[in-house]
Structure formats: C-alpha cells, structure tokens
Design a protein around this nucleic acid. Sequence first.
DNA 1: CTTGGAATGTCAACAAAGCTGACTTAAAGT
DNA 2: ACTTTAAGTCAGCTTTGTTGACATTCCAAG
Lengths: 170, 170
Amino acid sequence: MAEPERATHQGGESLLFLTDEQLRQGIEAMFFAYRGFTADPDRILEEHDYGRAHHRALHFIHCAPSTTVKNLLAILGVTKQSLNRVLRRLIADGLVESRVGRADKRERHLHLTEAGRALEQQLSDAQRARMRKAYRDAGPEAVAGFRTVLEAMMDSEQRRQYHGMRNGRA
Amino acid sequence: MAEPERATHQGGESLLFLTDEQLRQGIEAMFFAYRGFTADPDRILEEHDYGRAHHRALHFIHCAPSTTVKNLLAILGVTKQSLNRVLRRLIADGLVESRVGRADKRERHLHLTEAGRALEQQLSDAQRARMRKAYRDAGPEAVAGFRTVLEAMMDSEQRRQYHGMRNGRA
DNA sequence: CTTGGAATGTCAACAAAGCTGACTTAAAGT
DNA sequence: ACTTTAAGTCAGCTTTGTTGACATTCCAAG
C-alpha cells in the first residue's frame, strides 16, 4: 500500500532510484505531517494566548532544567532578543523562573514552576498522543525507519544538538 | 543503533510499549528534522527577499498548474488576505500568472511563468537534494517506514488533500 | 588593582506573515 | 431580481523573527 520508492536491486542502499516525483511526495508528506504534528498543541496554546515559540521554550526548559539563556538560544536557533520576549512573558505569567547563576552571575538559569510544568505536561500529552497513535498505526519497523530518515535529514550541527540533548549535560 | 521503541512481543503492532521519553525523542527528532528540511530553500529565498510563504505558493502552483485561488487557500490553510499579499508580489515580480477562468470568469487560474518555474526548480532542487541524501543514507526500508509514519501523523483532512494532490484534479 | 574587552542578557524599534472584519466587483445560480 | 460565490482590497492587530544600542558581569593583561 505504501510503495514509496524503488530500488534497482531491492535492499541495495547505494543504488536507489529516486525520481523527482517520488522526492516531491516526500516533501509534501513532510509538510502535511508537520502541520498535523503541531495542530494539537496549537489549539491548547491558543486558549492561553501563547504561540509555538512559547511551547518550544517550555519544552526545552523542561528537558534541560537549569539551562542558560545562551544554551537555549543555540538549541532554538533564534536571536536572543526574540527568545527574550517569549521568556519575559513566561516569567511574568509565572510559568518559568530565572535564577541568577551562582558561579557566573551573568548567566540566568531557567526552571519551570509548578504551573509551567503543568502546562508543559498538557501540551506534550497532546503531542505525544498523536505521536503514539501514529507509531501504533505504523508499527515498530516503520517507526525505526522513520527515526532513521529524520536523523539523516538533520544537518550535522542539529544532529549534534539532538544527541547532546539526550545524553550529556546541556 | 536506532532502537527507538520496544514491543512487548516483537512485531506485535497493537501491543507497543511507548514510554513518554521515547515519544519525546520522536517529537524532538521531528523538530530538528523539519528545520533541516527547510534550511536549504530558506537560504535561497533570503537572497530574493522572499519567505517560506512564497515557496509554498510556488510549490503548489507548480504541482497543480491552473489551480484556482480558492483551491490554493484550502491546501495552504491560510486566509485569502494572507495569501493575496504573497500572490500579489509573485505576480508583480513576474513569477506567477493569473488567468481569468474560461468556464467561470470569477475564478483566477494560477500558472508559473518561465521565471517562476526557474525559481521553483532551484528551490525544489535544493530540497530534493537533501531528501535524496537522507533517503539514500537511510535505505529503502527506512524510507517506507518514514512515509508510513508521516501519513499516520496527518489528520484525515490533510491526508485527503495530500492524496488528492497526487491523483485527481485539483 | 585597574582597565579594557568579551560574554550574557535586556530594551526599543522594525519587518514578515499570519489573523479578523468590512467592503467592492463580477459572475453564477435560482 | 435576489442571493451566493470567487476574488481582491483596505485597515488594523498579533506573533515572532530581525538589528542596534545598552547594562552588567567576568576575566585577563598590563
């Protein structure tokens, strides 16, 4: 039912024939899937008058507690001024706490408050629910392939951040 | 090397154990991959002082030539005021042509000009190059899985558009 | 110790691209 | 004749990106 590409010798990974049309399908699939991927959290965010930028900040502060602003900037790939606006609002609303660094007082270490953790949970529950459903519908082998292709699609710096996130210190 | 999830009985597709952490990894992979996915065209667009909105318009006009404005609105999921701003500029710059419908003169049918086709090619070449590399690195089975999961991640309306795009008339 | 530069973060102003609402024009449908 | 539909326009707002200017802090060279 899928039949998304053809190999000259099936399984041969270097002799893979990929027509422009097949690649275009992949591009559109990515476009539509990403829309689905963000749809559920977007609905929740709208109720609170937040945007995707706030979601991303909450997500990564949750995953790397006590991270600095500089660090977050590197992960999100935006300017610090842009991030600051989002952060200021989250702090004003009592979702994020900014603590002056002990070792280096220039740094601000970011933490979620109880309310912040609650919203982050709510958002990521919604997103995980869709992810879980997609994974279940697709099956384990498909998931493995999905992850492999996604990783190959990142560029090396992003891949570094992606792995750094999961293992070592932020 | 991947080991992205675990099944209680391997291969069993309804009894799939998915921890929050595993799903979070999927979410982040999607985030970083989408960034990679748009990075190359973004660079080209910047030179021409266009944004992603212009890219999307060019892409879908290319794929569904002679599509109407209404149709494009449905695909892109934005308001006509927003699309119109983008379209007006593309027409003024001579990349897109708007022809009054023959059967229904209220409709405007959109076509790429020679220059429009050229830029669309340039953009999609860049995006396809990354896609092709990711597909090659990952191998055919991974690609099949990738496509399966992406499709499962769309919601039904998007999936309908996605398939409608490829087969029937727009 | 002082001082000058680098690092970190904040504030102000601006641009792109989304949104809503109100309106016009032209063509179709009934 | 009246209503509906397709497209376009104008005005104004929001989110989220940008650059420029600035304050604070740290550190290392003199």
